[in-house]
Amino acid sequence: MQPIRILVGMFGVDQHEVGALAVSSALSDAGMEVVYVGRFQTPERIVSTVQDEDVDVIGISCHSWEYIEYTPELLRLLAENDLTTPVVLGGSVITAADTSDMIGQGVAGVFGPSTPMELIIDDITALAAGRNLRE
């Protein structure tokens, strides 16, 4: 079995990187290959990375409100490029109302600060498996 590949990054000038690093390390411990792109990402940059790196899932760590604007841009750009890669968001700033909003727009999963790591791993694993079936 080929390991799951997941991109982990952050949008714009959102710079609180600690969560992204900790999650990356946990995902790697769970056997995934994390393509860590870190801070200062834009939807354009993420889409071209997704193509080159052929990741199964896109994970964005959110600690400022920038994700509210960038996420729909990313979803649109993925669709324009015929990419079906699922997008998941994680971070403490995402409230319950934001979560349903994001899911409504097409985000595949939202993880809050109290989501246990096992659940995050399970969800990402399921998303990656779904994607492989589609192809």
Binding site: P3, D29, A30, G31, E33, V34, V37, F40, R45, S48
Partner: peptide, 20 residues
């Protein structure tokens, strides 16, 4: 890749991003 879990954090891209 980790011998134990097979996982990896691939961080080289980070240094080459800027400039894109």
């Amino acid at each position: 890749s980790s011998d134990r879990t097979g996982g990896a954090v691939l961080g080289d891209r980070l240094r080459m991003e800027a400039g894109g």
